[in-house]
Simulated scan of single mutants.
Amino acid sequence: MLHFSADDIDRALTFPGLVETLRTAFREGAVQPVRHHHTVERAKGTDSTLLLMPAWTDFKAAGAGADGHIGVKIVTVSPDNNDIAKPAVVGLYLLLDGITGEPQALMDGPRLTQWRTACASALAASYLAREDASKLLVIGAGAQCRFLARAHAAVRPIKEIRVWNRTPANAETLAASLRDEGFEATAVSDLDAELGWADIITAGTISTTPLVKGARLKPGAHVDLVGGFTPGMREADDDAIAKARVYVDTRAGATKEAGDIVQPIAAGVLTADAIVADLHELARDQKPARQSADEITLFKSVGAALEDLAAGIAVYESLKPKA
C-alpha cells in the first residue's frame, strides 16, 4: 500500500485538472451513501464530530469488466484544537481496489479535502458565476480559504481578491500568502461594503450567524457557501437565499446537513423543489445554469464522497509506480 502526504497530493494535482476530473465524475456518477455523521461528546470543551464518507465506482453503470475503486474518508472535527495550535480537521483517505478490496493507498485526508472542496466550488462557479467575474471576496482565513481563492481563479478571470475575517490579523496573513502567489490581494474590515463589491463571494467559516446578507449583494453576484456542514451552521441569511437561484452539490446531503438549506426550508423561505440543480444535473446538462447577467446565484456545498473518490483516484494514478 502506498502512502501519500500533503506535499505528495500538492504535486499530483492542479486546479484546472481537478475541476475537469470532478466534472467527469459528477457526469458519470458513483455510489455514495450519505455520509455518516457522529457527535463525539466530551466532558469538557466543545464536542467533536466524526465523519465517515464512503464511495465506490458504480460498477453496474460501468458494465462488465470494469475494475474501479472503493474509497472512504475518516475525518474528525475538533474545534478546540485551535486553542492548542493544532488543526481542527484531521483525517485520512483510504483507497481500495474496486474488485478485490485490497488497500491501494492511504492519503492525507485534510489536504485531499482542501483540494476537492475548492475544486467542487470552482466547478459550480464554471456554471453559475458570470464569465467576466473578476472580483473575489473571501470570507474566512482558514486553510480551506486559500484553496478556494486559487480554485476560483482557475475558472474565472480573477483580478482582485479581498479577504475578510473576524480576526483581522488572520485576514492579512491569508492576503499576504495570496500576494506571494502573484494575486492582487488585500485584507478588508467592512464586510457589508465588500459584499456589494464582489462578483464572487466564497465563504469558508464555521459561523452559526449569517455573514452574507442578501440586501448587500449586487446584481449578477455568485455566492459560494462552503463552511457550514451541520444544520446549526449558517453563512448566508434568509434574504440571500430568497433573492438567489439556489444550487447544491448533492440534494440528499444539502437538504439533510446544510444549515443554509435546512433552516430556510424549515422557515418556509425555500422549498426543496426550488433548488434549481445539483452538480450531477449541471454536469449532465439536465438543469439550467446561470440564465442572465443580473441574476444572483448561490451554491451550497456540504461535501460529497464522490469528490474524495475522484480526487483520490487522480492522486493515485499520478503518483503510483509506473509499470
Rank of each mutant, 00 (worst) to 15 (best):
V223N: 05
A203Y: 03
S121C: 14
W197N: 09
A236E: 02
K320L: 11
A61F: 07
F4W: 12
D83M: 13
A30E: 04
L112M: 10
S5Q: 09
A85P: 08
G196Q: 00
V34F: 10
F4S: 09
A88F: 05
I70Q: 05
V163G: 09
G101P: 06
A143W: 09
G312M: 09
T297C: 12
L225T: 04
V212L: 01
I265P: 10
H38D: 07
L50I: 04
K218P: 12
A236W: 08
G227W: 02
S121E: 00
L112H: 06
G228M: 09
L92D: 12
K322H: 05
P87V: 03
L137A: 14
D10R: 15
P157K: 00
S48T: 05
H280N: 10
P33S: 07
L2M: 15
I200S: 06
V19S: 00
E184K: 15
G63K: 06
V262N: 13
A64Q: 10
A252P: 04
D132Y: 04
D224I: 01
T39M: 10
R290Q: 12
E307P: 12
V77S: 08
D249A: 11
D237M: 13
E194C: 10
G312L: 12
A133D: 01
V155Q: 07
G253N: 13
D308G: 13
L2K: 15
L52S: 14
A66W: 10
D58E: 09
A125Y: 03
D294H: 15
V34C: 12
G45T: 09
F4T: 06
G220V: 11
L195P: 05
G98Y: 04
A105N: 01
I201K: 08
E307N: 08
E307K: 00
D285V: 02
K256P: 03
